[in-house]
């Protein structure tokens, strides 16, 4: 399973809120340097086009936030009632 497939399980109406919270987590994470430059540039690409709340934007944010701060990423998902997604993240292939 990929992050994109995972995000497709989330209602689209939640993309906006989720992308905001994941971005906050990413910007404040102490482990920001765990995010590969290529992934960071992909996020900037979507941000530049104001598309971080798109399916692909959220998928990349989820991937990066998980690398930077897995605990907070899990907490964000729980807070939004997305426990299933948190559990399914274990199935995402590296």
């Amino acid at each position: 399973m990929s992050h994109l497939e995972l995000v497709r399980r989330i209602p689209r109406s939640m993309y906006g809120m989720l992308s905001e919270k994941l971005m906050d987590a990413l910007l404040e994470a102490k482990g920001g340097d765990n995010v590969p430059s290529s992934l960071a540039k992909t996020i900037l690409y979507y941000w530049q086009r104001d598309q971080l709340d798109s399916e692909a934007g959220v998928a990349n944010l989820l991937h990066a936030a998980e690398l930077a701060d897995p605990a907070r990423t899990g907490a964000v998902l729980d807070e939004l009632g997305l426990e299933e997604i948190r559990l399914a993240m274990r199935l995402v292939e590296p």
Binding site: K41, L44, W47
Partner: peptide
């Protein structure tokens, strides 16, 4: 002081505003 992509993120935000 921060990672380049964070400074760039804020810069895009600043331009947009």
């Amino acid at each position: 002081m921060d990672l380049y992509w964070r400074t760039t993120y804020y810069s895009i935000q600043a331009e947009r505003l």
